Amino acid sequence: MIPKDSRIVVAGTGSIGCYTGGLLAAAGKHVTFLARPRVEAEMRQSGLKVVDLDGTERTVPADQLSVTSDPATAFDHARTILVAVKSGATEEMAGLITQHAPADCIVVSLQNGVGNADILRKSLPATMTIVAGMVPFNVVQSEAGQLPLTVRRTTQGTVLVDNNVAGLADFLTAPGLAVSENDDMQGILWGKLQMNLNNALNALSNLPLATQLAERDWRVLLADQMGEALKVMKAHGIKAAPVQGVSPAVLPWVLRLPDFLFRIVARKMLAIDPRARSSMWEDFSRGRATEIDYLQGVIVRLGDEKNVKTPIARKVIACVKQAEGQPIRCHPVAEIRQKTVL
C-alpha cells in the first residue's frame, strides 16, 4: 500500500496533468508539478482552477501550490510520478526521471497512445514500477496568459490504471477524480486509440466536438478510419477493449447511422460540454507539434507490416502535418478524402 502522505509528481502540465494534479492537490495530497517556465510563472502568480463536469470549481491558491521547472527539484523524494507529457516527449522525460527520481518510485503513464508504458519500461531502471494508465475524458485549458490557469473537464469517464501496484487506484482517487484498476490495460489503450482517431478530425474541422459529431459526414469519415484500424488490429491479433462501455466493433456502425437515429442511440456520446475540443485542436491553436504519429501513425505502420491498406489514415496524417504551425481553419471532409498522398 502507498502511504497517504507520499509525494506525487505530475510530469507535464497540459490539460490532463493540470486536471489530475489539481484535483489531487485540492484534496490535500502532496503534489509537485514539473512545468514549463511559462506555466510555472502563471501558477506561481495566480494558482490553478479546476472545473468538474458538473461545474464544481476547486481552486488551489498560488501559495499552496508546489510547482517548478527544475526536474531535480521536482523529482526529489518522489514516490509516485504521473507522466502526462505528449507521447513524443516520453523518452526525454524518462531520462529526467532516471537522472533525478528515487530508484524505487512508481511511474504512471496517463498519456495517449499505446506504447508509452513500454517506452518507460525500456528506458527507466528495472527498480522502478511502471504502470499503464488511461484517461477517458476530455479536458480543455484556458488560453495562454489567461489567469488563473483553468482546466475544465467536458466529458465523463473513470481513469483506469493497471493492477500491478496494490492500493494505487485508491491513492489517486480524489473528489472529482475516480480511478479504478483494470487487468487488460493494453486492450483498453487500443480501445482508447480507436476513439482518439477523432482527435485529428476534430482539429481539422475546427468545430466543437459536439458540433462535429452531430454532422454525419464527419462521423462517416471517423467510422472509415476506425474500420481501417480494426482491420489492422485483427491482422496483428490485437483485441481492443471497450472504453466507457462502447464496443470497438460496434462503434463504426453507430457512427454511420443517420443523424436522427444517431442522436437517439448516442445520447451519452453527444452529452458533451459545448466548449469541448480535442487535445490536437489545442495543439493547433498553440502552434505545437501534434501526436498524429502516435495515433494514426501507429495504424499506418502496423498496416504496412501486414500489408493492410490504410488510405484514410494516410490522408488524415498528411492534412495534419500540413496544418501544423499554420493558422487554424476548417478542412472540409471532401478535402481530407481527396488529399493526395505521395
Rank of each mutant, 00 (worst) to 15 (best):
L255K: 10
S278L: 05
V254E: 03
A318V: 03
E335A: 10
A229L: 01
R263E: 14
G297K: 00
L222T: 02
R275N: 15
D224E: 14
V250W: 15
L255M: 15
L222N: 05
I272H: 08
V298E: 05
A323V: 09
G245V: 09
Q244R: 13
A271Y: 06
I238A: 10
A276V: 04
H331Y: 15
A240R: 04
G245M: 10
V341K: 04
H331G: 04
S285H: 13
R263H: 12
I238P: 03
R337L: 13
V246S: 06
F284H: 11
K339D: 00
V243C: 14
I317W: 02
P252M: 01
I292N: 02
S278D: 05
Q322H: 14
K239I: 15
N307P: 09
R216I: 01
I238G: 11
R286Y: 14
F262T: 09
E228L: 00
Q296L: 00
I292Q: 06
A334R: 12
D293C: 04
E215K: 14
T310E: 07
G237A: 14
I312V: 10
G297W: 00
R286A: 14
R216L: 03
R263S: 15
Q326C: 06
K234F: 04
D273A: 08
T310K: 04
Q322Y: 09
D259E: 15
Q322M: 15
D259P: 09
D224H: 07
K231N: 10
Q338D: 11
S279E: 10
F262S: 08
A235G: 07
A229Y: 00
D283K: 08
L302I: 00
L270M: 11
D217F: 15
